[in-house]
Amino acid sequence: MSGVSGERLPGVPDVGATELDAMVDGEAADPRAELSKTDHDTDLGIAMAEDAKRVSRGELSAEEYWRKYDAAAEAEFGDDYRQTPNPAIDSPDQTIESETAESLGCSVGSMDSITCESAASAASDDGDTQENGARWGMVIDLQKCVGCDSCSVACKAENRTPPGVSYNVVMEEEHGEFPDVTRTNVPRPCMQCENPPCVQVCPVSATYKMDNGVVNIDYDRCIGCRYCMIACPYGARYFDFGENYDDEVDGAGAVTSPEYGVDRGPREDGASPVGNVRKCSFCTHRLERGEEPACVETCVGDARNMGDLDDPDSDVSEMADSSRAFQLKESEGTDPNVYYLK
C-alpha cells in the first residue's frame, strides 16, 4: 500500500500489471461458450455485455444503454424482464434519469422489495423459525472435536471481540500419564440456559431470555456491575475492559459485529459495549439472516450442530436425545441449550 514502486516487498513476486491482466484474461471464460449454455439469445447477451463495459468506461450513458436494449430485452425475456426490478432504476439509488426510467418496459420497483420477499420465504422454508418459536440449540460432538480452536478464532473474527473477551473457548483436559494419555477438548460457548442464573441476578433486567432461547444482553441498559459473571457457572461471561487490538491491527475497531441485531458502528472508548458484560449470542445476527453461527460453520470436524430443539425431528433434537448426550453441570439445574455428545 505505502510501498514505493520499483521497490520489491519480501515474498511478493516480481510481476508487472500487464502480466497480471493477461493472467485474468487467460482465466476468463469464453463469453460465447458460456452464454450458449442458456436458452436465450447469445448475440444479444454479448452485445449488452460489450455496451455495459462501455457504460462503465463512460463512453456510453446509462440512459442510452437502456433505451437501446429495452425493447430487445423485453422481447427476449418477456415477463421476467417486465416484473423484475432493475438495479439501475432502483429508487432511491437510481442511476439513470427518471424520464428514461419511466419509458422502460421493466418494473420500476425497489430492489429492497425483492430482498425482503426472498428473506421472508427463506425464513418460512427454514420451518417456523420466528412465528412458531424455534428454540435454538447447539450439539457438540466431542468425538469429532479435534481441539483445533478454529471455533474460538472464527468467533473472535465474527464478533470482533476485544482482548480478554472470547465468547467461545476450548477447555482442554488431559487424562492419564504418558504414554497412556487421552485428551478431551470441550468447546464452551454460552450455554443459553433455560434457567439462566445470570438473568436471575441482573438488577436492571439488562440480560434476559429471548423467545428463541438465546440469552440477550441489552448493552444500552447494562450498568456493568458484573453480578452475572459471578452467577454464571460456566464462566461464559466476559467484561469489556475497553482494550483494543489497535497495536496489532490498523483500524481494528473500525467495524463491529451487529450483535443481537444492533449495529453500533465503530468501536469507541466509553461507548457500549465498553464497560458492559458480553457473551456468546449464538451469533443471533447470523441466525436472523438464516446462517449458522460462525463456530458451527467453521468447525473442521463438523463437530458443532445448530438447530431447533423444539422440533423433535431436527438433527439437534435427535442428537440431544441420544444416550451419548449430556449437558455441562447438569446438577446446577440451569438446563443448558448446548448439549455435548460423549
Binding site: 438473568v199 436471575q200 441476578v201 441482573c202 438488577p203 436492571v204 433486567s205 439488562a206 441498559r221 447494562c222 450498568i223 456493568g224 456491575c225 458484573r226 453480578y227 467484561f239 469489556d240 457500549s272 464497560g275 458492559n276 458484560v277
Partner: peptide
Amino acid sequence: LGRMDRMYHPFLWRQITSAL
C-alpha cells in the same frame, strides 16, 4: 460500576429475583 453514568438505571428497571 462499568458504566458509572448509568448509576440511576436500577431505579428505572428492576429484576424481582435479583438480590442486588
